[in-house]
């Protein structure tokens, strides 16, 4: 399988895409919610995956469609309800959960229309966030959380512990999870959720219904 293109590392965006691509076996059906210009879809297509995408940004959606990808302009909050049950093997939501209106409902929909859900999100419990809030008294401003509070699209930030609690409440089974640093490298805190919640900049979960 080819490596993720270098530009995504350079732009310091969607670093988790490569990890997600590795989690998805060949020749399955995938829905990528918040697919952007279709980078993950295009990569998945190289191993026979039937990938569909939803993107809220019209320019990115147009770019993806222009590459011949099955991408629709739409959003997680409003469009998932129209897909049939179990239409996909994997439903991916990368770095979008914190930006949707109803994260809990979106997760429910993902596990209704897909057998597995893969979710990544920036971890608000990272030590840098905690320190900045503790000592600065202002909303943290980091590489990941770079937009001021009044214009951030990230209206539902959460920590790894928050997400685990929601998964437990909803009865989801966590099939895999890992925390990664900003460069997309797996962090070695697998043994301790609390350490991962302190040192992981991004979290990546694979879930199924219990």
């Amino acid at each position: 399988m080819p490596e993720a293109p270098v530009q995504y590392v350079a732009k310091n965006m969607r670093l988790d895409l490569r990890l997600i691509a590795e989690m998805i076996p060949p020749n399955v059906r995938v829905l990528d919610i918040g697919c952007g210009d279709g980078a993950l879809m295009a990569q998945l297509a190289t191993k026979g995956v039937d990938a569909r995408g939803i993107e809220i940004d019209m320019q990115a959606a147009t770019e993806a469609v222009s590459q011949g990808l099955a991408v629709i302009h739409g959003d997680a909050d409003n469009d998932l309800a129209f897909y049939p049950d179990q239409a996909f093997d994997y439903v991916v939501l990368s770095r979008t959960l914190q930006a949707v209106e109803k994260p809990r409902e979106v997760l429910r929909q993902m596990l209704r229309i897909g057998r597995h859900a893969i979710v990544s999100f920036p971890n608000f419990g990272h030590w840098e966030m905690r320190l900045k809030l503790l000592f600065g008294g202002r909303m943290p401003d980091t590489e990941t959380w770079s937009r001021p509070w009044y214009e951030t699209p990230n209206i539902h930030p959460c920590t790894i512990l928050d997400f685990l609690a929601l998964a437990e409440m909803e009865g989801y089974v966590i099939e895999h999870w890992l925390a990664v640093d900003e460069k997309g490298l797996k962090a070695p805190w697998r043994r301790s959720v609390r350490l991962a919640n302190l040192f992981g900049e991004q979290a990546l979960f694979q879930l199924r219904r219990g």
């Binding site: 019209m58 991408v71 629709i72 129209f82």
Partner: peptide, 17 residues
Amino acid sequence: VRALNAAAAPVSFIEIP
């Protein structure tokens, strides 16, 4: 598009400004 999604058809959709 939503009806096509419900039929699990592969579909691309954009609105041109």
